[in-house]
Nucleic acid binder design. Structure first.
Length: 527
DNA sequence: CTCTCCCT
């Protein structure tokens, strides 16, 4: 029996978990062969982790790529990209250009600048086709990047790092790499994710450069100095397991019978505090007992391939007789903020379309409304198009929902509807997410857990309403500490769903300083 | 006053 772990260099959460599990299993299975395939040269780490496993080098079939650096750092890399593209366009032989930027906003700005300057240059230059690509771009627009470039013209694709690994565009000869990407990181002290523009790693820069050499010899223009490449960039990207919430990983490992997570053989262990917070939250949710063992509830939660809070919400829907609705909400929440399409040139239309879905109570109920209307339309693509809804995301939500619904039998939850009453739905959400409560005080919203100042995301249906008590689905720092996907609750529900976690005194309006009762168990007892 | 990526 052979197990192959491919693309190991990507160091995704799941590859890293697999590493630990397989190493463990291999000890008891002399017949088991493990093959780890990595596209980077840091084979030492993998070999060392798997007890000095032999390394085989297989040369790639790639064309050479000349790398060029800037003499001095660029103050404005967006502008530098635009200038570089135009320079390549007027001075270099035929071949398409790929530009790496960090996100939608930058990409849109870059495309606009390029189009504007081409318009001004008019017939003085050959035609330049400017095409954006990022994950949230509707599929029909994504497809355009694959159209062959007409003779005499040149194509420039402006991409996120979706073009670094996930898709390959034929005909790219030139790559422009400003050396930045958006990276997720996770603060276990506050439970907050951040999405911050950071310098990418050398491994990532090399991967980008490689995109220029797939069909012929190419050129890569790095908009940073050779010195910065050598001395300022990290060798490799920090593995995802060290940058993310580990709630469902911990639940999964516990359900596999791995109790001592603190000493689990991770190739790169996650921060201790991240494990501790995950254990603490699972304890608060009732998934673990005071010994850190999986409870019956925890075992049922582990059956669902979603985050523990979402899982708890689904299980709580049984009690409130609203599993039909909660399944839909869970599915809609699982497709990340990509339901509503909001192109820059049609923001007014898109925002109006979104307003039509708004119902009282909050974003979860708006998402439910969108899904139900889509079902009524017969899962129509046209309906999505007319309502500025992303069909791809809806189809994904439907897949997730089907999968979750298929698991309801196994966790013994009957699928029933509360027939339009929002209170049971919001109570079920509260039962899963009581850890994520925020309260309005005179200075704005503060989290109940850490008294941290947070803001309702401008996309939210409650952006202007400002209800006193909110539950948020996630807390993300982008330009500010934003609560994304919020729902209005009554403070009394917190006592109803989590009496072990909240005391009534803490929820009185007069006492704004009170913290939730301290958890009784320490990390050692739970670990 | 806003949106890296991926899909168990």
């Amino acid at each position: 029996c052979v197990i192959i772990i491919d693309e190991a260099h990507e160091r995704t959460l799941h590859t890293d978990i697999l590493f630990g599990l397989i190493k463990d299993i291999a000890r008891f299975r002399s017949d088991l062969k493990v093959l780890v395939a990595s596209a980077t040269l840091d084979t030492e780490r993998f070999s060392c982790f798997f007890d000095d496993a032999p390394v085989f080098r297989i040369p790639g079939r790639r064309f050479p790529v000349d790398i060029f650096y800037t003499k001095a750092p660029e103050a404005d890399y967006l502008e530098a990209c635009v200038v570089s593209v135009l320079q390549i366009h007027v001075t270099q032989p035929p071949g398409d250009i790929l530009v790496f930027l960090t996100g939608q906003e930058e990409i849109e700005a870059c495309c606009e600048l390029l189009q504007e300057r081409c318009r001004r240059l008019g017939s003085k230059i050959a035609e330049l086709l400017v095409l954006p690509i990022y994950a949230n771009l509707p599929s029909d627009m994504q497809a355009k990047i694959f159209n062959p470039t007409p003779p005499g013209a040149r194509k420039v694709v402006v991409a996120t790092n979706i073009a670094e690994t996930s898709l390959t565009i034929d005909g790219i000869i030139y790559v422009i790499d400003p050396g930045f990407c958006k990276q997720k990181s996770y603060n276990a002290r506050t439970g907050m994710e951040s999405l911050i523009v950071t310098p990418c790693s050398r491994a990532s820069a090399n991967q980008r450069a490689g995109r220029a050499g797939r069909v012929a010899a190419g050129k890569c223009f790095r908009l940073y100095t050779a010195w910065a490449y050598k001395h300022e960039m990290e060798e490799t990207t920090v593995p995802e397991i060290q940058r993310t919430n580990l709630g469902n990983v911990v639940l999964l490992l516990k359900s596999l019978g791995i109790n001592d997570l603190i000493h689990f053989d991770f190739m790169d262990p996650p921060p201790h505090e991240t494990l501790v917070l995950a254990l603490e939250q699972l304890y608060a949710l009732g998934a673990l007992n005071h010994l850190g063992e999986l409870t019956k509830l925890g075992r049922r939660m582990a059956e669902l391939p979603v985050d523990p809070m979402l899982s708890k919400m689904i299980l709580a829907s049984e009690q409130y007789k609203c599993s039909e609705e909660v399944l839909t909400i869970a599915a809609m929440l699982s497709v990340n903020n990509s339901i509503f399409y909001r192109p820059k040139d049609k923001v007014v239309h898109a925002d109006n379309a979104r307003m039509n879905f708004v119902v009282p109570g909050g974003d979860h109920l708006v998402l439910l409304n969108v899904y139900n209307q889509w079902v009524e339309s017969g899962y129509s693509t046209q309906w999505c198009y007319e309502n500025f809804i992303q069909f791809r995301s809806m189809r994904r939500a439907r897949d997730v929902r089907d999968q979750l619904e298929g698991l309801m039998d196994r966790i013994e939850v009957e699928v029933v509807s509360c027939q339009g009453d929002s209170v049971p739905v919001r109570k079920a959400v509260t039962a899963g997410y009581f850890y994520h409560t925020a309260r309005l005080s005179k200075g704005g919203y503060k989290t109940v857990k850490h008294q941290q100042t947070v803001y309702v995301h401008p996309n939210s249906s409650l952006f202007e309403e400002q209800p006193r008590w909110l539950i948020y689905h996630e807390l993300v720092f982008t330009t500010k500490e934003f609560m994304r996907q919020v729902i209005e609750i009554e403070s009394g529900w917190l006592l109803e769903v989590a009496p072990h976690y909240y005391k009534s005194k803490e929820l009185e309006d007069s006492s704004s300083k009170k913290m939730p009762r301290k958890q009784g168990k320490t990390k050692e007892e739970l670990g």
